[in-house]
Amino acid sequence: MAPAPVTVPGTPAATAPVTVPGLTQAPVAATDWRERMATAMQQLEALQRTEVGVYVLDLASGQSFGHRAEERWYLASMVKVPVAIAVLQAVERSDITLDTPLTLRAADKVDGAGATLRQPVGSALTVRWLMGQMIIYSDNTATDMLMNLVGLQAVNGVVKALAPQGIGRITTLAEVRRQVYGQLTPQASHLSGHDLVLLQRAGSDAERRRRLAELLHLPPGEIKARSLDGAYDAYYAEGLNSGRLDAYAGILTALVQGKALHPDSMQTLLKLMEDVATGPQRLRAGLPPQARFAHKTGTQRRRICDAGLVRMPGTDAQHPVVLVACVRDAPTLPRAEHLLQQTAAALCRSGLLTQGLNDAPTCPAFLPDDRHGAAAAQLAR
């Protein structure tokens, strides 16, 4: 069994390491990278007054570190990785192919990033193209089309098979929105995809509440007085699309070790994850430039995440470092992204990615309270 993660007095307990069936782990001498990570996480939370969770698993040694990793975090678009696995498993069974066309319906459209929303209704979009939009650009409409293709049961089956405990039920992205607005009125279950797009475009929270009443043909007084922040908090408390960070690491571990997909399918997904265009100021910005990072970001109101597989040149492709991190209730998106960037920088400077060399010159600086740098990074996005 791998050594237990380090626990530092006064910090949330570190989680037990993920058990990886079949993983050969040679005895590893204790190193200080976990102590350095614990100190860095203390500094980040003390200076930022914002909650950060992180889980790190070194597949080469079996060592792990967790900070708030046993808590439940909203995963947001990181759930798109198990969606992709479910789709590729369907391809492996010959139920579909990557060139299978799906017809875009008006009901499929969901607010969010990506090009699918801009395609004309009736367009024939291949599974391959939709997969790229979903993973690289975090496209919600593409995601829901793929979820509807393979079925939510298959997606949740992937999660249960690869992370038997610790991750709640996955829903469509349209259902996320209906659940949130459902905290304001039960009539939100009737919102169409087009309605959801109009609500996103409404702008301010006050305008969104007004538009919600208008779309549902309700008097404004029938919309609960709860704020949208309160509606999201109530939704988060339900545990949908949420989970422990160590449990999510189990999905990534199973993927890279060939337990989720056949080799060709695995490489297809890992290549898409290396090409992710979202969140360039998150974990990737804190890693050394020579690192390969196959990852997926997640973004929701006052919740952001990033998780992936870090591989340095010359290391075994089957034994990367698994890195999963989330931030909640940061005052701004740039501050939240800065925390993720600094979490990765702390990991690099801990020596884990640099053959035991602490504070390697290739690692970005660890500046836990760099407000000016975070603001500059936001301007550059």
Rank of each mutant, 00 (worst) to 15 (best):
R105Y: 01
Q341L: 06
A225M: 02
T315Q: 10
S192Y: 15
G356W: 05
L173F: 02
A231N: 15
G258Q: 08
D195E: 10
A234R: 06
A317L: 08
E175R: 13
A29V: 14
P334E: 15
P263N: 15
R93S: 05
G351F: 08
L240Y: 11
R49I: 06
G122E: 09
P12D: 04
S192E: 13
K224R: 15
F293P: 00
A202L: 09
Q179R: 09
M131W: 08
G53I: 03
P5K: 03
R128S: 15
V54Q: 01
D139H: 06
V155Q: 00
E71H: 09
P280Y: 14
S350F: 06
L218M: 01
C363I: 13
V91T: 04
K109W: 13
I223N: 12
H190Q: 15
F293V: 05
V324I: 05
G351Q: 03
Q153M: 09
L23A: 13
A69S: 08
T50I: 08
G356E: 14
P220W: 04
P101Y: 00
A4V: 07
K80Q: 06
A69F: 03
K271G: 15
G258Y: 04
M41W: 04
T315E: 12
G122D: 10
N358C: 08
L44P: 11
A374D: 08
T297P: 01
L149W: 05
Y137D: 04
A174R: 11
T100V: 05
C363A: 07
S350G: 08
G243F: 14
A30C: 01
V155L: 04
P101Q: 09
A249R: 05
G373A: 07
P27S: 12
L199V: 00
E207S: 08
A188S: 03
L196A: 07
K271L: 05
M41L: 12
H262I: 09
L59R: 10
G10F: 06
H190W: 05
V81P: 00
C305R: 11
P313N: 00
S265M: 07
Q25D: 11
R34S: 13
W129P: 00
M131Y: 09
T253Y: 05
Q153R: 14
A115I: 04
Q165E: 14
M273R: 01
G122M: 04
V121N: 12
R302W: 03
T50D: 00
L184G: 06
T278S: 09
Y181L: 00
S94V: 13
R201N: 09
N140G: 07
V127C: 05
R36S: 09
T172M: 09
G166N: 00
A325G: 07
K271E: 15
L352A: 13
Y137C: 07
A13V: 12
R226P: 02
D108V: 03
G53A: 03
I96R: 01
D369G: 14
E71Q: 11
L88E: 12
E274T: 15
M266F: 00
Y55Q: 02
A365F: 13
S61R: 05
L44W: 10
H338T: 14
A26M: 04
H295V: 03
Q200I: 06
A291I: 03
Q341M: 14
